[in-house]
Nucleic acid binder design. Structure first.
Lengths: 375, 375
DNA sequence: TTGAAAGCGGTACCAG
DNA sequence: CTGGTACCGCTTTCAA
């Protein structure tokens, strides 16, 4: 295969001589694409008028129509890079999530898209794979595109990332958590408190020997917070903790079976299992079936996240519902408000939110225990 | 909420006077970010030398180090828009998938990322939501960023989309299908043939009254192809068809229960169900449990896609395995090869693949029936 | 309402 | 190996 020789060389280092760019002017698919000046010439106006038509500013109706016809005729598409360079304002918004494969985060991205796209912002989406170094690399690479604003996941970042983000001087929102010291603003909830609530729910149902299964990675802060909340509440209730930590994030369905096995091996009399995610809870329930255990009669199982599988599984899975899509839309709205504020005021460019409104930049997202059949 | 007054106005129409851009030169987070000329001045070289250091071209080691120090000291981040404009070459690759929430497609995106990122290409990701008009809008909007290459899903597009794509003059790959007339190149498989294979498998296991459950939408071409394959093979086997079409794409777990109910109501003696997706198959199996039907003893269920749930469900789900991640990496490799070819040759810019190598631009992706417990 | 000129921040090209 | 200059395609600014 052609690629094997030089599989990671940068693409496009060879080049076309500047003067040859418009070499093939013949009307073929290979002809250089039309420029704004081409449109202007065809419509018999100046570039500026074309620019104004595109931006929807004040242009006489007749002129505007003539220009629009020329645009359509040539199939003109404006060059965003040129526009961004000239105006000093890109049309990008950057988003970073730990894993696009997790429906949780893809819902958040969809929510962000829904909020930002109508305002002409194009998302630059990055998948950090729960790796802070990778997050840093992605931030660096996205910053090259001068995004108007940035959304990222969690409160945990390398110090270089924080530095980059602050220096970027654009609104930043941290999602899915409520950091003690946000870089700029946050849209999320306390994963620890949510987990405590689940333990209280289970205790209220009479379960006293409650286990927790989660991932082994120290990088999944939200998972760790949930574990922390479990520990706090178990202690508060005077119960003893039973924790199994196993496997990498993202936690998938495959996680549940071995984790359940490990838990029951160590603490055979466990009467309820709280899982770091619905994915894991589902895997655990399926494993219960294989072991001939009935859920919840023999053992109760609870999840986190209210994924679709929690609703569709038999038994249906008791879980904590978090509005992932809403986190996206709220984040989008928060960023837009900050952009307006920066923009409207004294014209100081690229100001972060925190310089203006230090405090009330945290949006708290609701969550609720959804009581279903499994617990 | 502040946004309610003007929820969809474009952002950033007010502006900062050009001359004020560097108004606050004080060393604060509000100072204008450093430019290449600043780096050059600090290092005592010309901009060109800085540019060469960044590009990793031939620069004397001592000079390079000096420049690098200046870069680090200033925290300089090159502006991608300026670079793209000047060189006539962006660092973007565009991808369009029907739904980011589907693990199938998010895996493909991950594969693409893995293939393209090492070459310095930044993905522009778009979610068409199974809507061809939306796809067209997204293509138009992405084209403004002059992507070096484009990957999109399926063979079905509006004629305007095809026109835009051809005129863009960059390599284009259609994924997840093998169109009779690809725009440029394709990486996929025949969904119809794969479905036929599943019917043959079920027939081979002795099932004769095989139903099909799928979505009602005409927009999900891959779903329709699977249905077509089912119909062809059922006919070939001398069986009669039993088809239920229900609900929108993407098909989720919620689809399975009502679809199974509808199928059994109309054809109560059905002995096997083939589902358009594992999601649906899972929902159907859970519904079987609720109805007191044992799988596969009372009724067999098969899925499509080899999603994680197919492996973790009890019973495990018989399905067709498709390497979604591999579709992404193969697509990436195909695009990279085309970029190299364009680039290396006569320097004609922005040439599509098909102008070179009309035929062998289709990469066929393997699939296999995975026999598990459910059928 | 429209146009002309300047320049955004880099890279190509050629000369030294 | 390094620097000077022109210029990428668009928007800003200011004048008409």
């Amino acid at each position: 295969m052609r690629l094997s020789t030089n599989a990671t060389a940068p693409i496009g280092m060879s080049s076309t001589p500047r003067t040859a760019k418009r070499a093939s002017e013949a009307r073929s698919p290979l002809a250089a694409p039309p420029r704004m000046s081409d449109v202007a010439a065809l419509a018999g106006v100046s570039k500026m008028t074309v620019s104004r038509v595109l931006a929807g500013r004040g242009v006489a109706a007749a002129t505007r129509e003539r220009v629009q016809r020329a645009i359509d005729q040539l199939g003109y598409v404006a060059d965003a890079a040129a526009g961004a360079l000239s105006s000093g304002r890109s049309a990008f918004a950057a988003v970073l999530v730990p894993s696009l494969a997790s429906s949780n985060f893809s819902d958040t991205v969809r929510g962000l898209t829904a909020a930002l796209e109508p305002h002409g912002l194009q998302l630059l989406i990055g998948d950090t794979d729960y790796d802070l170094e990778r997050e840093e690399r992605l931030v660096r690479s996205m910053l090259r595109h001068q995004p108007r604003c940035i959304a990222l996941t969690g409160a945990q970042h390398t110090s270089a990332t924080r530095e980059l983000l602050v220096r970027a001087g654009v609104p930043v929102v941290e999602m899915w958590d409520l950091p003690a010291l946000p870089i700029d603003a946050a849209v999320g909830f306390s994963n620890a408190k949510a987990a405590r609530e689940m333990v209280r729910y289970l205790a209220g149902r009479g379960y006293r020997r409650i286990g927790f299964i989660g991932g082994a990675s120290e990088l999944d802060r939200r998972g760790l917070e949930r574990l922390k909340g479990y520990r706090q509440e178990v202690k508060a209730q005077g119960m003893s903790e039973r924790v199994v930590r196993l496997g990498d994030s993202p936690i998938t369905m495959r996680h549940g079976a071995p984790a359940l096995d490990a838990l029951l091996q160590r603490w055979p009399d466990t009467d309820a299992v709280m899982c770091v995610s619905d994915m894991s809870a589902f895997g655990a329930i399926m494993q219960c079936r294989r072991r001939g255990l009935s859920v919840p009669a023999d053992i109760a199982v609870a999840g986190f996240g209210n994924f679709e599988v929690a609703e569709c599984c038999t038994p249906t899975i008791t879980t904590i519902s978090v509005d992932a899509y809403g986190i996206g839309t709220r984040t989008g709205e928060t960023l837009l408000a900050a952009l307006r504020e920066n923009d409207g005021a004294n014209g100081m460019p690229r100001r972060a939110m925190s310089t203006r409104t230090p405090a009330r930049n945290s949006v708290k997202i609701d969550y609720t225990v959804i009581a279903r059949e499994s617990a």
